[in-house]
């Protein structure tokens, strides 16, 4: 509870937090199909209808309600983004922790592989993975997870190395604590703060990457909707039906802004060095 209060008393946390809450609500509604219209229903008579009381954000070329498709798309992006970040953070944390703990050859192998992955630009690497595995929702989840995993590995390994040499870890060894207990209770518990910040920031990136992949036709496949896909479809109609482009574009922009602001706020709140400034 004090965490929530801290976020909402932080200036960018307040804005970011609000955006993220709204985003998650919209995503949930979209995911469970609670939308103003059926997102797949084609209202043939109302093709390319401008925004109105019935169609809040207008309709597309096939007469499908843009607002409903947008909500569905947000749900889809969110699902992909969250799954990818969950995978990336779990795999990255495990690799980072074990690399720091065991050191030597294992550390070398893990970190060099991560270096190779980081050497490619994120979207290019994701494209490569999808080109090999074929397009689809779950391949894009896997691709995004692999792309962002090295960042988590690095974020975990650094602090884990320094915590490993702290006296309370030595103390635990003198009691004969098991390796698993030390890794979970002493190392991981002290990494919660940097991981929280990283997860929030990674969500913003992965939403953007998902939109990019869908835009290129490699992520979510039609007729399912996704923000990137909606942008791609609206390209040729930009002048006749600008609402097709504007609403998804603004949604992407604001959501990423929201997650970034929240991430920055969390970094300030969780970092003891800057805590006094926000208090």
């Amino acid at each position: 509870m004090s965490m929530l209060r801290a976020i909402f008393s932080h200036p960018s946390g307040r804005i970011g937090g609000t955006i993220v809450v709204i985003y998650v609500v919209v995503a949930m509604l979209g995911m469970f199909g609670i939308t103003p219209h059926n997102p797949l229903q084609q209202y043939r008579i109302d093709r390319l209808h401008a925004p109105s009381m019935v169609y809040w954000m207008g309709t597309d070329l096939f007469g499908r309600d843009v607002a409903s498709r947008l909500m569905k798309g947000v749900g889809q992006s969110f699902l992909v983004g969250v799954s990818a970040v969950a995978l990336a953070s779990i795999a990255g944390t495990v690799l980072g922790l074990t690399a720091a703990w065991f050191g030597k050859a294992w550390d070398g192998i893990v970190m060099r592989v991560m270096d190779v992955l980081l050497a490619f630009p994120a979207i290019l690497l994701a494209l490569l993975i999808i080109a090999v595995a074929g397009p689809g929702t779950w391949t894009s989840v896997a691709a995004i997870a692999i792309v962002y995993m090295p960042i988590f590995t690095r974020v975990v390994r650094g602090p884990a190395l320094s915590i490993k040499s702290r006296e309370f870890v030595d103390a635990a060894r003198t009691f004969g604590s098991s390796r698993r207990y030390i890794l979970t209770h002493h190392l991981l518990l002290n990494l919660v703060a940097p991981l929280t910040v990283q997860v929030t920031l990674a969500l913003a990136w992965s939403l953007l990457t998902e939109a990019g992949l869908s835009f290129l036709g490699l992520g979510t496949q039609p007729p399912s909707s996704s923000l990137g896909l909606m942008l791609a479809d609206s390209r040729n109609l930009m002048e006749t039906a600008p609402w097709l482009l504007i609403f998804p574009a603004i949604t992407i922009m604001i959501s990423i802004l929201g997650f970034n602001l929240l991430g920055d706020a969390l970094r300030d709140i969780l970092d003891p060095k800057t805590r006094s400034r926000t208090a």
């Binding site: 702290r166 006296e167 309370f168 030595d170 103390a171 635990a172 009691f175 004969g176 604590s177 098991s178 207990y181 209770h185 002493h186 518990l189 002290n190 919660v192």
Partner: peptide
């Protein structure tokens, strides 16, 4: 430095027992 800042005192005191 020799007490984990994220653990409560009861967990800290329980650790030697769990370890054994």
């Amino acid at each position: 430095a020799s007490l984990n800042p994220r653990l409560r005192v009861d967990s800290i005191l329980a650790e030697p027992v769990i370890a054994g």
